[in-house]
Simulated assay, not measured.
Amino acid sequence: MARLLSSSDIRSLSRGLGIQPTKKWGQNFVIDANTVRRIAATAGLDEDDVVMEVGPGLGSLTLALIEIARRVIAVEIDPKLALALPTTVAHRAPEEHERLHVIETDAARIRADQLPEPPTALVANLPYNVAVPVVLHALETFPTLDKGLVMVQAEVGDRLTAGPGTKIYGAPSVKMAWYAKARRAGSVSPNVFWPVPNVASGLVAFERHESPEANRKEVFGAVDAAFGQRRKMLRQSLKSWAGSGEAADEILRRAGVEPTRRGESLDITEFIALADAKETL
């Protein structure tokens, strides 16, 4: 069994590597072993899973994941951390360290051909400013991802899991619904991080479902247009996406959506109906 990192271990490793957590990459390292055990357990992993971990940092969560999964593919943007991680895992999990594969790259731009094999699960402690693009990019790029658990800013978690008709419902909510069913899976205390963030954090779990038979580009285009001017009625906010005001009215009519509604009232099926209607013009 791997020896997980304590708070003093994290600080000692950081000093030894000459690393100070940086805001540039949103680095807040988890320093509580109970928290990483909880995340690994909540992710619902089994011994056949290939986990893609984004932002492994010094390896706190990596060590918990490698005990369970068949392989952990750690995607790290910081070159110092990417270089040090295999040594840390080999030292603290000598029986499992060969399951680790580290890739030094930006997770928001990673390609399928960079991975040694297709991942089945995404588990990550994500900086709030890149959480949404990283999750959506992973779901689009790796169709084999059938589940995931990400730790994000609480507000981001609310947006990813929100339903129509709420103030926090927006483009991230709809786009996540295209790929998967997402839910809040708990909260995380700021005190388990170093440095301590000034925002609350939470867990979001998701399970992929079969993607709709529709033009994703057009659906997401409608979503972006509707929420780009979310206070306006759809007949106004969809004009640029549709090509004209007249086209927007006709698309709305064919989709069976009232032109006076606003984007925040539509669910994913209605955005799909809009995209389908545009293609029949």
Rank of each mutant, 00 (worst) to 15 (best):
190 P>W: 13
130 V>C: 09
141 T>A: 14
117 E>Y: 12
194 W>Y: 15
159 R>S: 02
180 A>Q: 09
156 V>L: 08
221 G>R: 07
147 K>D: 13
111 R>I: 00
173 S>I: 05
153 Q>A: 13
211 S>Y: 04
201 S>H: 12
206 F>H: 11
179 Y>V: 06
107 A>M: 09
146 D>K: 12
161 T>G: 11
157 G>H: 07
113 D>S: 12
137 H>R: 02
175 K>C: 12
214 A>R: 09
150 V>G: 00
138 A>T: 08
164 P>T: 00
170 G>N: 10
206 F>A: 12
193 F>L: 04
151 M>T: 08
180 A>P: 08
164 P>Q: 02
227 F>N: 02
135 V>E: 01
205 A>Y: 10
215 N>H: 14
165 G>D: 04
207 E>D: 14
174 V>L: 14
124 A>Y: 11
114 Q>R: 12
165 G>S: 01
183 R>G: 07
118 P>E: 00
124 A>I: 00
227 F>Y: 10
108 A>V: 14
201 S>Y: 13
191 N>D: 14
141 T>H: 03
162 A>V: 03
207 E>C: 06
208 R>W: 12
226 A>C: 08
172 P>C: 14
124 A>W: 09
176 M>G: 06
164 P>S: 03
203 L>C: 09
133 P>Q: 07
154 A>F: 10
149 L>I: 04
214 A>C: 13
121 A>I: 01
151 M>I: 05
142 F>M: 00
110 I>W: 07
118 P>R: 05
116 P>F: 01
112 A>G: 07
148 G>D: 02
108 A>F: 12
162 A>R: 05
124 A>F: 11
188 V>K: 06
202 G>F: 05
126 L>M: 07
112 A>H: 11
163 G>P: 04
153 Q>Y: 05
172 P>A: 13
210 E>K: 13
216 R>T: 00
114 Q>C: 09
157 G>Q: 03
192 V>A: 06
118 P>C: 02
188 V>L: 03
178 W>T: 03
149 L>K: 09
127 P>L: 05
227 F>C: 05
213 E>H: 11
129 N>Q: 13
227 F>I: 00
181 K>E: 15
180 A>I: 05
176 M>T: 05
111 R>E: 15
180 A>R: 02
138 A>R: 01
214 A>H: 12
127 P>N: 04
127 P>F: 11
141 T>R: 03
167 K>T: 08
213 E>Q: 14
169 Y>H: 06
149 L>R: 09
124 A>E: 05
161 T>W: 02
186 G>D: 04
195 P>I: 01
155 E>L: 10
144 T>C: 06
140 E>M: 02
182 A>P: 04
145 L>H: 06
122 L>M: 11
145 L>D: 03
120 T>H: 10
188 V>N: 10
153 Q>F: 10
167 K>S: 13
124 A>H: 08
169 Y>A: 03
120 T>D: 11
132 V>S: 15
171 A>D: 02
111 R>S: 15
201 S>T: 06
153 Q>E: 15
117 E>I: 01
135 V>F: 02
112 A>R: 13
168 I>Q: 14
140 E>F: 07
218 E>A: 15
150 V>W: 01
156 V>E: 12
202 G>W: 02
225 A>R: 04
131 A>Q: 04
182 A>K: 00
206 F>G: 13
166 T>E: 13
163 G>M: 04
148 G>K: 02
209 H>Y: 13
173 S>Q: 07
185 A>L: 03
222 A>F: 15
167 K>F: 12
151 M>F: 08
169 Y>W: 11
146 D>G: 14
